[in-house]
């Protein structure tokens, strides 16, 4: 058993995911507490160069053609062997499409507990997780001797996980990877949208509070009066009320407009991830405890259906 902190690096098509750097920053804090090293765990095919800008003490690199792109089966087998062999104090995974595919299975296989939705660590080395759509925080000791932890963004800056000095790379042999049951066929690019919401300076964003497809028009009128565009939270897109190209958040676009007007959006972490860097966030939500008010600069609990006609009117007058 060691006091080292492992960070499972996520990459897709040669691009390291932002969460990996966030985790490297988190791991540094944790390693200072345990007195161990930070090791970036990189799996891939001709991919060792991806680790050049990691703020880590070393890169543990596993090379194999079957690891070129992430698939849950091959990656799970390779990670299981590594973790079992090196028994770090903790392994950080993204609470993400990649990390969540493997972390729980590894917990069941290896018998090491997994802590979900961790956002940061306390100075004395406790995990702090964010649950219930951002409404509840949970704190506790990191399970011993080895813990698997899935990390949300927001607690550390990705910049802190980068370094201009390339860490040393230690190669680790891949285990046998045959009989794989999960294979990547191809990637499909997102469809190009009518407007690119990532480039807009004025966004009117609607959430489930909009209630139905017809009401989207109300937000549309306001947006056109403002010279901006309408975007949305996931439930609105999943209901088919707006196309996927308008989705803001973890599975959609990252937006940074000058004004982000959130109408009937609760402010779940998966949504906030995509809009928290907007210049000015104005939130309209009838629930005074909605987490959106923790990221917004201005807020109101006025019913959006009362506000929308009045606001559209006043904007038109102001033009």
């Amino acid at each position: 058993m060691s006091q080292n902190i492992f960070v499972f690096i996520e990459h897709v098509r040669g691009q390291v995911a932002e969460i990996s750097y966030v985790m490297l920053a988190a791991a540094r804090q944790l390693a200072q507490n345990t007195g161990g090293e930070v090791a970036a765990v990189l799996l891939g095919h001709n991919a060792q160069d991806l680790g050049k800008d990691f703020a880590a003490d070393r890169v543990l690199y596993i090379e194999h053609a079957a690891l070129a792109e992430f698939t849950s089966d091959a990656y799970r087998v390779a990670l299981a062997a590594l973790i079992q062999d090196q028994t770090p104090r903790a392994v950080l995974f993204g609470h993400s499409s990649i990390g969540m595919d493997v972390s729980s299975g590894l917990s069941a296989k290896l018998g090491y507990p997994v802590v979900s939705s961790c956002r940061s660590f306390t100075e004395d080395g406790k995990y702090v997780s964010q649950i219930c759509g951002g409404k509840i925080m949970v704190e506790g000791d990191i399970p011993s001797p080895t813990a698997l932890i899935t990390m949300l963004p927001g607690g550390y800056k990705a910049e802190q996980g980068k370094s201009s000095q390339a860490p040393s790379v230690t190669s680790v042999a891949a285990p046998a990877l045959d009989g794989l049951r999960v294979t990547l066929k191809q990637y499909i690019e997102p469809e190009a949208g009518d407007v690119d919401i990532a480039k807009e300076t004025m966004l009117v964003s609607v959430g489930r509070g909009i209630q139905n497809k017809d009401n989207i028009e109300l937000a549309g009128e306001l947006a056109s009066a403002l010279g901006g565009s309408v975007c949305a939270s996931r439930p609105v897109v999943d209901q088919g009320w707006l196309p996927t190209t308008r989705l803001v958040g973890k599975s959609g676009k990252l937006v940074k407009p000058k004004i982000y007007l959130a109408l009937g959006i609760s402010g779940a972490p998966e949504h906030v991830e995509g809009m928290s860097e907007s210049d000015v966030i104005i939130a309209v939500n009838t629930d005074p405890n909605a987490p959106i008010f923790n990221v917004a600069k201005y807020g109101t609990t006025v019913d959006m259906f009362d506000l929308l006609p009045a606001l559209t009117d006043k904007v038109r007058q102001a033009r």
């Binding site: 698939t71 066929k185 996927t244 989705l247 973890k250 599975s251 676009k253």
Partner: peptide
């Protein structure tokens, strides 16, 4: 995957 990228997986 983030940003609307889809992986087709068998």
């Amino acid at each position: 995957y983030p940003g609307g990228l889809i992986a087709e997986i068998d």
